[in-house]
Design a protein around this nucleic acid. Structure first.
Lengths: 147, 147
DNA sequence: TATTGTTATACTCTATAACTATA
DNA sequence: TATAGTTATAGAGTATAACAATA
């Protein structure tokens, strides 16, 4: 008989546990892991409209509205109308937003390292690369330890 | 700068995608992936009370009630009062339940293989082992391909 | 007509609290 | 008093539908 736990179980519970660690690590900065994800995607590449940012995160644009409402309420982002297309909002991080992204990002990275610490040597990198392949259809962009 | 996608993103989306495949694979059998998980845990080791089964799955006992209501409604399980402790229910699979577990289990295994097919050779096994280590604190019990 | 952001709403999933029957 | 199962309820998280402004 096969292992009593299926892959889907491991994925679910790994995510739950990492989310817990992330939430605890980010609590001092007043954000949670998903809000950090939004901050990250907003500074990742070209300035993005709300809808583009939502698409990059794989969430609905209506969900993005709620995240940005919260982040704007905390003074971490500002919405400005796009110069050429006034239907769009360009969302930018405030100085406080960049500070939280920076420090919160380090805290989240540390939480991820702690989560992965039971894995020896290159296994953690291989895990992330394998997941990246499964999700994106191509190998992870993480080629060397750079965090 | 690190990869734009975090581990938590990969875990979340890997789970979403595998859940989709699982749901599609199990639809012909009238159950979804979580119901198959319940059927599996009910036949995994000693006969279990509802609460024991819930604990093994990492869900609340009230959630288990709803799952068993559904599975009993489909004729796949029966609840019987425990002989020695009449507060408990012993939950057993019906013949139909065993049939669905068997055929649905194979369909789900096939979906998992399909999901993992982009990974070469031993990488899939290593992925599962690494996740098992992270979730349970010990290496996976999957020692050989047996499914 | 189509698209962006927004709002209102509904749905899924799950847990907490309170009840019952047993122990 | 404590526990197993149940019920009612509430909360988190997310999406769908409809709307205003703009293209």
């Amino acid at each position: 008989m096969s292992s009593s736990k299926s892959l889907i179980y491991f994925l679910k519970h790994a995510q739950l546990r990492l989310t817990e660690l992330n939430t605890a690590a980010l609590a001092p900065y007043g954000i949670d892991g998903r809000e950090l994800g939004v901050l990250r995607v907003l500074t990742d590449g070209e300035p993005a409209s709300q809808q583009q940012a939502a698409s990059r995160l794989g969430i609905d644009r209506t969900t993005m509205v709620a995240f940005l409402d919260a982040l704007e309420g905390k003074g971490l982002v500002v919405r400005r109308p796009h110069a050429d297309d006034r239907r769009r909002n360009v969302v930018e991080l405030t100085e406080a937003g960049r500070d939280i992204l920076d420090r919160g990002g380090r805290a989240a990275d540390e939480a991820e390292r702690e989560f992965l610490s039971p894995l020896a040597g290159p296994v953690a990198e291989q895990l992330k690369a394998a997941l990246a392949t499964l999700v994106t259809g191509e190998p992870s962009a993480t080629r060397r330890r750079d965090g």
